[in-house]
């Protein structure tokens, strides 16, 4: 089922000396239950494209549709709160919240009570394969792999159906890299998420159902 569609998406920004066209006319449709890998060299525009899919900014030309609705007319804060979550290479966890509190954050943000949020967070933490002991640990006390699992648990916690991951394995060793990829695959295939992963790593890309290549801001396949 199509959940996200980019139509002739362009994004350009102005630096002091020139206008950079980071994304040039990208069109693609993303469906739930699939894992997509977007690959390309640095500066090819893939991270910018992901940010546009996350609603962190709007295309300068073209449109992004979420379940058929134009992102430009949606409340993008609500979109990120309810439909899409982003996972980053540097995890972007709240350093002074415990693992459980980090996962509780998006749940409570939607108005769920503290007790119920704690229960749901514990379930998700278990689901991404983290030990129960990490619940009360702060992120810096956890390994990189554990932190990324926690970030994925937090992404799942929002209750949406889109996970956008920007180099999620970039800071991990090969074993943890494999585990995270499997976790994302599982999210796509068994939990019906549309998982869109940006990666440089061919091994990660090889695990995806669809691989999109970008060069100079354009989709080339």
């Amino acid at each position: 089922m199509e959940i996200l569609r980019a139509e002739q998406v362009h994004y350009s920004y102005q630096t002091k000396y020139q206008t950079i066209e980071a994304v040039r006319g990208v069109s693609y449709s993303f469906e739930t239950g699939n894992m997509y890998a977007i690959v390309g060299e640095s500066g090819s525009g893939k991270s910018t494209f992901l940010s546009l899919l996350a609603g962190l900014d709007l295309p300068t030309k073209g449109n992004v549709y979420v379940e058929g609705e134009d992102m430009a007319v949606l409340n993008r804060d609500s979109y990120r709160r309810e439909k899409a979550s982003v996972v980053y290479q540097s995890f972007n966890l709240f350093p002074l919240l415990t693992a459980q509190e980090n996962v509780m954050f998006p749940i409570e943000l939607k108005g769920t009570g503290k007790r119920e949020a704690a229960k749901k967070a514990a379930e998700l933490i278990e689901r991404v394969g983290l030990r129960e002991q990490v619940l009360y640990q702060f992120p810096q006390m956890m390994s990189g792999g554990e932190q990324q699992r926690l970030a994925i648990a937090r992404a799942m916690a929002a209750g949406g159906k889109i996970i956008l991951a920007d180099e999620p394995t970039g800071n991990l060793d090969s074993e943890n890299q494999q585990n995270i990829v499997q976790l994302l695959k599982e999210a796509a295939h068994t939990m019906e998420f549309a998982v869109i992963v940006i990666t440089h790593n061919p091994e990660v890309a090889a695990e995806a159902d669809y691989v999109l290549r970008m060069r100079d801001g354009k989709l080339i396949n």
Binding site: A54, L56, D77, S78, Y79, R80, R81, E82, S85, V86, N92, L93, F94, P95, F105, P106, L109, R154, A158
Partner: peptide, 11 residues
């Protein structure tokens, strides 16, 4: 970082 993460989560 905290601000950006909060925004990314929909705050």
């Amino acid at each position: 970082g905290q601000y950006a993460t909060m925004r990314s989560l929909g705050v």
